[in-house]
Computed example of a mutant assay.
Amino acid sequence: MNTSTKQTTRLIRLPEVMHKTGYKKAWIYRLISENKFPKPIKLGARSVAFIEIEVDDWISDTISNSRTAS
């Protein structure tokens, strides 16, 4: 595969997820527990990160659903 066409997968930490969504930590984890938000991946014993494209897709879907619900 040509590296110039390969999309980079970026991992983001919780503070960036909170900034992108406007949600606090507790609400994000509540949505995760209800399967309404992308689950983080485990990086280590006490470390997780989110896949940026999954969070961005969730934000886009939320906006679309908000616009069509009217």
Rank of each mutant, 00 (worst) to 15 (best):
Y23D: 00
E54D: 11
F37Y: 01
T5D: 13
I59R: 04
M1Q: 15
E16N: 03
S64Q: 14
S60W: 09
L11G: 05
K36A: 09
A69Y: 02
E52Q: 03
I51T: 01
F50I: 02
S4C: 12
P40A: 08
S4L: 15
I32A: 06
K20S: 08
I53F: 09
G44R: 08
N65P: 01
F37N: 01
S4F: 15
T8L: 08
G44T: 11
I59P: 03
I12P: 01
R13V: 11
T5Y: 11
T62N: 13
E16M: 06
I32S: 01
K25H: 14
T21Y: 03
T9L: 10
V55P: 03
I12H: 00
K20E: 04
E34P: 07
S60K: 15
F50E: 00
K36Q: 09
R13W: 09
W27F: 14
R67V: 08
E34Y: 10
I12E: 07
I59D: 05
T5P: 00
S33G: 11
T8M: 10
R10K: 14
K20F: 05
E54W: 03
K24T: 05
K36D: 09
P15A: 00
H19E: 13
P15G: 01
K24N: 10
W58G: 02
F37I: 04
K6S: 10
D56T: 07
I28E: 06
L43V: 08
S33L: 09
V48Y: 07
T5K: 10
R67Q: 14
R10H: 10
M1T: 14
R46I: 10
A69N: 08
S64L: 13
Q7V: 06
W27H: 15
T62M: 08
K36T: 04
K36V: 05
H19D: 11
S66Y: 15
A69R: 08
A45N: 15
A26L: 12
K24W: 09
S60G: 09
A49K: 04
A49E: 06
E52A: 03
A49G: 05
N35P: 04
R67I: 12
A69Q: 07
R10A: 11
I63C: 07
I51V: 08
T5F: 08
P38M: 00
K42W: 10
E54T: 02
W58N: 02
K39I: 06
S64T: 11
R67E: 13
A49V: 06
T3Q: 15
W27L: 13
D56Y: 03
